[in-house]
Amino acid sequence: MHVHIINTANRAQYLDEVEQMHRHRHRIFAEVMGWKALESPDRLDIDEFDTPNATYLVAIDNGVVRGSLRLIPSWRPHMLKTLFRDYVEGDPPSGPGIWEWTRHAPGDPSFSREINHQVRFLLNIAVYEFAASRGIESFIGIADCQIVPRMIDLGWKVDPIGLPVNYGEGVGYAFRMHVDHVNNDRLRARLGRDNTVLVEMPRGLVAEQGRMARRAVELAMDLPARKIGRAEEVLRELSTVDE
């Protein structure tokens, strides 16, 4: 299983997975957690913040979406700045190193324990890798009070920037979390995984090309050393076909 960065640049390669993601989000928030406000007859969770400004980190396991989260730069419209402005004491943090983290939906109670454990860790590790690639220094968002002990268990330091508020589906508060990359090493050690988990495909690959490229990238990321020689042979062969 890998976590893929999906944004406007490469979204066309992930049309099926994007739909799966919205369906999975509906399943988790509306059906499992019972958030009435997110119930939708088409069983897809899509809101006004699912725009080209959003970047998704999506855990994909052989074509099946196992979990996802949404990240929006703080200089674009986001929930804390518009919908939940009152949740923050003072001005909401904003700036080039700050992104909002929302719609965190790891796993599903119907998946196996093992898969849920993997997804939970992989999504968090992916967030650190994404932060490193974009120079993100802290994340902001709203956390349900019940979830906070689990975030802290995963090594995040969760600093409140507002008092708890009843948001209709529970009680939560606005937070800010600084990115401490040392914790990424701890998460990797706890999961027992030392290779990179995050995949970012280049833009502009057409359908079949895109699929092949994804498979190749995922394979290369997990390739054992003893197979590297053979992989090189195959690549040499492929690159000489048209000569």
């Binding site: 009070c145 906070v148 002990p149 802290i152 268990d153 409140p160 008092l163 708890p164 508020v165 009680v171 508060y173």
Partner: peptide
């Protein structure tokens, strides 16, 4: 009231500290 919200946050973080 705001005081309840404040006590909620304090109690939550107190429990977190005990766990940690």
């Amino acid at each position: 009231s705001r005081i309840l919200a404040a006590l909620h946050l304090l109690a939550l973080y107190y429990s977190i500290a005990a766990n940690r």
